[in-house]
Every structure is written in structure tokens, then in C-alpha cells.
Design a binder for these strands. Sequence first.
DNA 1: CTGAGATCCTGTCTGC
DNA 2: TGCAGACAGGATCTCA
Length: 272
Amino acid sequence: MPELPEVETIMTLVKSRVENKKIKKTKVINPKLRWPIETRKVKYLEDKTIRSVSRRGKYLIFKFKSQKEILIIHLGMTGIISFKKIEDYEKHKHDHLLIYFSDFIFIFNDVRKFGSIHISNDFNKMFLIKNLGVEPLSSDFNTEYLYELSKKRSCTIKEFIMNQKIVVGVGNIYAAEALFLSKIHPAMRTNKLTLLKCKKLVRSIKSILSKAIKMGGTTIKDYVNAEGKPGYFTQELLIYQKDKCPIHKNNKVTNIKISGRASYFCDKCQIK
DNA sequence: CTGAGATCCTGTCTGC
DNA sequence: TGCAGACAGGATCTCA
């Protein structure tokens, strides 16, 4: 489900709700996720106070006061975080984890179970975190970085920018949008990428992600933030799930599969 | 090392 | 109306 802008939006909301709050109780309703929730470790978070909430790639990171353990949450495709007053909580289908604070509950719900929840005492060595690539909105993500890596590979450019080991946070929607803005064919091989195209691509990714963050992300089907509200970037999409190209207005948008994922592009704008 | 393809899971929509 | 099959914001694992 969520790509970087959605996770960033959720992170900001969650942060405002739980920072400096003490966890009273935890309850694992259904441990079955991408990796099973370790109930015993979750239990250990009880009576601990959350020091900070942040984001790394598509992961939400919770740090605690005076302890090393870190809570790491990935929302997968359909993970949703919500808050309820304790007295208003009713169990929903696909609720997985409840975290009780003094007067409300943090709820993690995930229909498709592609999300995951981990507790680790060494963030930088944690297996899902340690190999992550650079943050797209940081200065580490720049033309030279992308160009150097692109020379060493021959996968498609779309797979390349969606690869979390290269750059984090770009998923199927923003990959399509960024490639459209950069006028790059999604199935083009990375090693064919010119320095100029790399520059355009880096710029497009940065601008599309920051714009989407400002608008609270994109809602295609299910996505809602931690207040149950949709994202408003949906109306800004240019190519993803569109029928006609916004530039060549008579040209039908092409949809091909690249490594199993729908890939929308305009075959007049985006030449291989 | 790379890249292609299968896989985890449920819900919804399309077409016969 | 029913049912099979395709498809969905992800990412890891296996195998060649």
C-alpha cells in the first residue's frame, strides 16, 4: 500500500499522538504477518515510554526512553494504523496488534498480512534495515550516486528505482509518475541511462515525493492515514491508471507488466 | 553477484 | 447469480 509519502504522513500523525506517552498494555490479536509478531518481545514494551517516532524508507521507527529496543513497523500493501478511545474499541477483522496508552488504543490492522512488526535491539544491524539504500529526499540521493549504480546493472529502470537497496520509498505509483516526468521508458535498461536522464530522474523523484507529502499521499483504494483520511495526491496523478496521456491527449496510456507489476507509460513521451 | 518468477494473503471486480 | 480468474500502494526468497 503505502509508499514514502503515505508513510511520512502516517508517521507525522502517529508521532503527534504517541510521543512521550507510556505504553500501558499490549495485545497481539493475530501474530500472523509477513513475519510472525513476537508476542513475548512486544510484551516487553509495556511500561516503556516512547521517546521518538520517525521514518526510514517505508518503515516506521519507534524509539523508547532508557532502553535499546526499537519497534519497527512496515505497512506492507494494506497495513492501517488507527487510534480509538479504549471504550470505543470494537474488534475488527484483520486487527493484529493493539497498544494501549492511558486513554486510547493504537491499532494495527492488515487485511493482506504483507505488513510486519519487529522489535530489535540493534537498529543498524536489523536485517530489514541494514541494506536499505539512501533516502530520496536527502542529498545522498543525487545524480552521481544514481548514475554510478546504474552503470553496474542491467535491470529495467523501473525495477531499479523501486529497489529499496538503491533508494528507499519509491513504489509502483511514484515510479510510474517519476518516469513519466523524466520521459523515460519504464522497461529501459539502467545501463543505457545517460547522465542527463539520471539528473532528470533524480529531480522528478524528489519533486513528486515532496509534493505528495504536502498533499498527504495518494489514495488508490484503501489507503487512509492514521486519522482515517485519504490522501489528496490522487488527483495530481498524471499517468498511473490513466487512460490518456496528459500531453499527447489522443494517445492511450500503455500498461505493461514489469516484474509482475502494472507499469503505465505514454509510448510517445517515454521512448526506450 | 544478477535477474526472473514464485510466493505470502484477502477482497473486489470483470467476464463468461 | 454464481463462479473462476485477474488484479491490487510490497518485498523476500529460491533458483538458474
